[in-house]
Write a protein that binds this DNA or RNA. Structure first.
Length: 414
RNA sequence: GGAAGCGUGGCCGAGUGGUUGAAGGCGCACGACUCGAAAUCGUGUAUGCAGCAAUGUAUCGGAGGUUCGAAUCCUCUCGCUUCCGCCA
């Protein structure tokens, strides 16, 4: 969430950003509510002051009937005001949570159609192999039994694809640890506080994409970003320990309701997949630089694998609430003859960190909210799609990129 | 899942319901001493909110309650530890 004082001082900017992102929040109402909160808080604080004063005058132990009566009167007044205050505070909080992060100046304005291509790499192939047909023909994937056991869009991987997934993961782990990230496994469920603090829609929202556990305050994670953000919540981190870079490996669960019409065939869009995710906690003034580094690592991975791609800078309407700026990398699908999303990385600035109370203590002792960023290292299921489309031969073998061979016993094809 | 115990500041650890935001220690920062360092001594050392500030207020896992007054009493809840049960 944003800081209410920041909103007050930058009302026009926040309103513009909110509008560009396609959100509808009445900032004036929010500030009015904050005014109400402040004045009520002042009168409550004054009553509390009087209460404390009276209590301290009675420390001797002599029960003065007069003082007790005075104390009782204040108690009654407080009882009338305090519930009102907490009601306003919680309303204000709800409103604050609905304001999306402000966008950086260089973010293209508009919806998805305004996404800006900023780089292309590699040679687009003219044709490729449909990953699902290929994988089924080789007995490497089984959606039918997945559906039998868990429902549509669940699947089993077997033999070649399962091994290839493992090789991709090993390669990814090597990459990110070489770049200084701590490899981690994480809880696959998080509490609602973490979920919402990361900027995801709450259980009550119709747009929520998560699976929630009935009767418990838990959701299956949609990305390791969730438990990684929560890792440091309610902590104050010494400046000298930043940046903190983590790479979390986890299963990811997504309902993906309402995605018909988008590309959903086979492994491209499923309810459960594994992913290696990079996550960074850093100083505010370093986050833009870190964002470029995350993007560079994502590029490096695709280049090492030999996958053609382009980078887009996402337009305001395609950013989501927490991001101030986001890059998507889309690989070239030789099958569909278009670019399709493979990774993304976001600079969430202080948006998530403020919600989850993650701060830095500077050398000079001052404390402030730090910045967080996230980026996909390797989305395993989609990476398998990419591998088949680019490196399989129709009715033939799958050519294994050189960098993966060490993790497949040295073979050059599967 | 059942039972018991415990949850206090960066850490350890006090705390008969009434100046306790909280003793003491450790750690850390600065200063003194020193050629320098160690040791020693001195000073300082939580966070949020409101306020230009002085200052006020809140926070002793969390939420409620009792009371003129709660870290301290009660209820619920979460977490940790130990014992029992159970299972990979």
């Amino acid at each position: 969430m944003l800081d209410v004082n920041f909103i007050r001082q930058n009302q026009a900017l926040v309103e513009k950003s909110t509008r560009e992102k396609g959100y509808d929040v009445n900032i004036s109402d929010l500030l009015d509510l904050d005014d109400k909160r402040k004045s009520l808080l002042q009168s409550v604080d004054e009553l509390r002051r009087q209460r404390n004063e009276i209590a301290s005058r009675m420390k001797g132990g002599k029960p003065s009937a007069e003082l007790i009566a005075e104390g009782k009167a204040i108690k009654d007044q407080l009882a009338a005001k305090e519930p009102e205050l907490s009601k306003i505070e919680s309303e204000l909080n709800t409103l604050l949570k609905s304001v999306p992060n402000i966008i950086f100046d260089d973010v293209p304005l508009g919806g998805e159609e305004a996404n800006l291509e900023i780089k292309t790499w590699g040679e687009k192939k003219k044709s490729g192999v449909d990953h699902l047909d290929y994988a089924v023909s080789r007995g490497w994937v089984d959606f039918e039994r997945g559906a039998k056991v868990a429902g549509a869009k669940f699947y089993y991987l077997k033999d070649g694809l399962a091994l290839l997934e493992n090789a991709l993961l090993q390669f990814g782990i090597k990459k990110v640890t070489e770049h200084g990230f701590h490899f981690m496994t994480v809880p696959d469920m998080v509490s609602s506080r973490v979920l919402e603090g990361c900027g995801f829609n709450p259980r009550s929202s119709a747009q929520s994409d998560e699976y929630f556990i009935e009767g418990e305050d838990l959701a299956m994670i949609a990305t390791a970003e969730m438990p990684l953000t929560g890792f440091h919540m309610d902590e104050i981190i010494d400046e000298k320990d930043l940046p903190l870079c983590y790479a979390g490996y986890s299963a990811c669960f997504r309902k993906e309701a309402g995605t018909y019409g988008k590309y959903t065939r086979g492994l491209f869009r499923v309810h459960q997949f594994n992913k290696l995710e990079m996550y960074v906690f850093c100083l505010p003034e370093k986050s833009q630089e870190m964002h470029e580094q995350l993007l560079a690592i994502e590029e490096e991975i695709l280049q090492d694998l030999g996958v053609p791609y382009h980078i887009i800078s996402n337009a305001a309407g395609d950013l989501g609430a927490p991001a101030a700026k986001k890059y998507d990398i889309e690989y070239w699908s030789p099958v569909n003859q278009k670019y399709q999303e493979i990774t993304s990385c976001s600079n969430c600035t202080d948006f998530q960190a403020r919600s989850l109370n993650i701060r830095v203590r500077r050398q000079d002792g001052t404390v402030e909210v730090l910045h967080t960023l996230n980026g996909t290292a390797i989305p395993l299921a989609r990476a398998l799609v990419v591998m088949i489309e680019n490196f399989a031969e129709l009715d033939g073998k799958l050519h294994v990129p050189e960098v993966l061979r060490p993790y497949l016993g040295g073979v050059s094809e599967l």
